[in-house]
Amino acid sequence: MPGLSANVKTFFWKNNPVTCQILGLCSALAVTTQVRNALVMSLALIFVTMGSNLTVSLVRNLTPGRIRMIVEVLLIATFVIIFDQILKARFYDISKELGPYVGLIITNCIVMGRAEAFAIQNRPIPSIFDGFGNAFGYGFVLMAVATFREVLGSGRFWKVQILPTAYEPCLTLVLAPGAFIGLGLLVWIGKAIAPTSEGGN
């Protein structure tokens, strides 16, 4: 069974959930206007994916086959709501900036995908590692896109002005189009460095 570091290595580049498996795109674009928000979303995903992978794996021998997807959604939703409540209580302003996108983690294909593809058939400890590895790879993509968008789009990093004020920020990057373009460029780089077999338009 691959250990923690092996999981991280695999899902970082070779089989990155976003650039390679094309999962979890929605939040990758929505919350990457600021590095701080991207970090919180990454942590949310690590928490939820590890939690849901663990619980799905724990009950895998009890779950009737017919309802297994509903059970997965239920467990995922529970962890998402827990994270959302914690965020609202302790980090209120971040919670407002992330808005509905925390709730949308429930439909984030990465979480559901790992639960269905791995956790339901494997033991708890490997499932936790798998969850961590995937979410970590996802977090990396988020941070990369967010750095690109926030620095070039507003001259700031973590809300701190780091580019000289003479720099005219490229506002498009923090608006919707910049998100798509930023992620598209990252996918390009990712696939150029570690080519996958997928081709064609």
């Binding site: 094309i22 992620l183 598209g184 996918v187 390009w188 780089i189 081709g199 338009n201």
Partner: peptide
């Protein structure tokens, strides 16, 4: 490397 997802996003 740009085929598929990449160009779609751009």
């Amino acid at each position: 490397p740009l085929q598929g997802v990449g160009i779609t996003l751009l």
